[in-house]
Write a protein that binds this DNA or RNA. Structure first.
Length: 200
DNA sequence: TGTATGATCGCCT
DNA sequence: GGCGATCATACAG
């Protein structure tokens, strides 16, 4: 059993998937860019929404892997996860930042600002830029409106040189109070679009 | 460069 | 009734 999208097997531990997603291009209705920052969340670790079991909010993490899990954060922002399955139970990867590559004008309009660097540098920001809402929850990632493209030299002109020497950093996750010791935040070392720098 | 705070919703205790 | 897998703004140093 495996669920492979853009060369990534989503029937795998979330921290493996989270690392592999760095460099993958994600588009929503043709708008998006290259993933430069992710975080992994696992069923057996208390910072995860699925740690407590299935609820009306997190049910999509308990469904098939390779789908979206969208939730509202602090009553204001939307956040987008990719659902994994690990030894039969749910897990997820939070998208924390992408490098804007497609649909820049639409992103600027949705975000209400010009600065390219601030368009998608944060989990709430990228959802606003990509137009993600509750309506995008629990949808397959290999069908419209989603599109995932494996990293390939020359696939996107602006990033071709970096793909050849892609260094992925790992560190503690951001904004949580439990299981803070797990180094399950991943980021593209050379990117200027990270939501926060990696220490050391 | 850093710390504090308000906004505002759904779920949990 | 409390608390976030957040963000923008306001201030201090």
């Amino acid at each position: 059993m495996s669920k492979i999208i853009a060369g990534i097997d989503f029937e795998a531990p979330s921290h493996i998937v989270a690392r592999q997603l760095i460099g993958v291009t994600v588009l929503v209705n043709g708008v998006g860019g290259r993933i430069v920052e992710t975080e992994a969340y696992d069923r057996e670790e208390p910072a995860s929404h699925c740690y407590i079991g299935e609820t009306p909010r997190n049910f999509s993490m308990f469904g098939p892997p390779g789908r979206s899990y969208v939730y509202r954060s602090h009553g204001i922002h939307w956040c987008l996860n990719f659902v994994c399955r690990e030894n039969g139970h749910g897990a997820g990867v939070l998208l924390r930042a992408i490098e804007p590559l497609a649909g820049l004008a639409q992103m600027r309009e949705r975000r209400g600002l010009e600065d390219e660097r601030l368009l998608c540098s944060g989990p709430g920001r990228l959802c606003q830029a990509l137009g993600i809402t509750r309506a995008d929850n629990n949808l397959p990632l290999d069908a419209a409106p989603f599109q995932l493209l494996a990293p390939a030299p020359g696939a996107d002109p602006g990033a071709a040189t970096e793909v050849l020497a892609m260094e992925v950093l790992a560190g503690p996750r951001i904004g949580i109070s439990k299981a803070v010791e797990l180094p399950w935040r991943f980021g593209l070392a050379s990117s200027r679009f990270l939501s926060k720098p990696f220490r050391q």
